[in-house]
Simulated assay, not measured.
Amino acid sequence: MTTASQNRQSTDLIDVLAAEHREVEGLFAELEARFGASGPEVEDIAQRVVTRLVQHSVAEEVHLYPLVREVLDDGDALAEREIAEHDAAERTMKRLEALPARSADFWMTYRILTNLIAQHVGEEEQYLFPRLAAAVAKEDREQIGDRILSTEKTAPTRPHPASPSEGGALAALAPGAGLVDRLRDALTGRGR
């Protein structure tokens, strides 16, 4: 599957993450167009949403939030809030994965997830990204953007709510979990 992150010109971390936000919004729009429907197409789109959100979240937790802690005066509090939002979204994604698209609970859980992600994206783009643009040199943002893209290539494709939520421990575990997820995806046909 080719993603927007693989087709992008800019590697500035802000541009990379904002483009991924647009990609996920596009996937949500595909699901919204089928609201209340069921079947393999709906489940496939839902799985693509979960995969992209998990990969994006891992990259943010490994690279973005440690940077936020380092360069912003209130970085610890901001990073903790963002990570708490990721944790809530990951638990919701885990519930969504377990539900058949034909159930009302699937669509209610989908709605909860879209609200969580919309709030998170809004906070990052309106509040966090402008502050990082002012605090971090463009060259440094581009290097971190490159690392984000690299991390996403080996990141898990499924939610793992019990895994570490930030930094080195997550960076060490993510490639192994990602490999296991991709093998499972290939065996179940999910990795199409």
Rank of each mutant, 00 (worst) to 15 (best):
L170C: 03
G191E: 09
A101I: 07
L149P: 05
W107R: 00
V50R: 01
V62N: 02
A135Q: 11
E82G: 15
Y65W: 12
T114E: 12
H56R: 06
K153C: 08
D185A: 07
G168L: 11
L183E: 04
R111N: 14
I112Q: 14
E125D: 10
Q47S: 14
A134H: 09
L67F: 10
D140T: 10
M1I: 05
A134D: 13
R192W: 12
E61L: 05
E61A: 07
I45Y: 05
A79Y: 10
K138L: 03
G145I: 00
R102S: 15
T109R: 03
A186S: 12
H160L: 11
G36M: 01
L183Y: 01
S5H: 11
L27N: 02
A172R: 11
R91P: 06
P130W: 15
Q55L: 00
A98N: 12
A118P: 07
L13K: 02
E32L: 06
D15K: 10
L132W: 08
R184D: 14
T2L: 13
E123N: 15
Q126E: 13
L116Y: 14
R131I: 07
L67V: 02
A29V: 03
Q6D: 15
R48T: 05
V180D: 08
S38M: 10
L78V: 09
R182N: 04
G178R: 00
L99E: 15
L149Q: 14
E97M: 13
N7C: 06
S5Q: 10
P66A: 05
Y65K: 08
L72A: 09
G178S: 10
G168R: 09
S10P: 00
A37Y: 11
A118T: 11
L116D: 02
D12N: 15
V71F: 13
H120Q: 06
K138H: 15
N115L: 13
A172V: 02
E41P: 10
L128R: 06
S163W: 11
A33D: 14
E124K: 13
V54P: 00
E125C: 12
A133N: 03
E60M: 06
R95H: 12
A101N: 00
L116T: 06
L113G: 08
A59N: 04
K153D: 09
A104P: 05
P164S: 06
S163N: 06
T109G: 10
